[in-house]
Amino acid sequence: MTEKKFFVPESLHNFYANGYPVGFQFQITLGGYRNKPLSCIEKFVVKVDDVEVPANMIHFCLGFKKYLPHEISDAYTDYWAAQDPATVEIDQLGGLPFGEHKIEVIMLAKSAYIGSPFYVTDVVNQPHTYNVSNMGKAEMMWVMS
């Protein structure tokens, strides 16, 4: 299989400050072949175990730059390379407890020249879902270890 996965497998882990877990992070990819201006990403929401993470706790990271969700679509001149993962950091004192968690990302990433909104999903055989309702999501169950 050469499926382009939205979530980078096994990328979920807690991160630490002074030896204490202060949050968790995971990686996602854009798929496709073209790099995308970040201004095309009009919505970025993360849910953990069906609970929406407050936007001020989310950092979308590309290279050395970090963006709050509402800042992503203002980054007109920054590009997300199709084959390079972005890191999503979530601030959470104590990190994500060990065990099974459901991580869901709802990302509206429209095409820069066609304009249609689409979601990158994790569904086999359906890497792009076009959805007229402007709602779509990618989700997957991960086990913290």
Partner: peptide
């Protein structure tokens, strides 16, 4: 070349 008319969030 690409014609990225839709690349901005609020307008074409």
């Amino acid at each position: 070349h690409f014609s990225d008319r839709a690349m901005w969030k609020n307008r074409q």
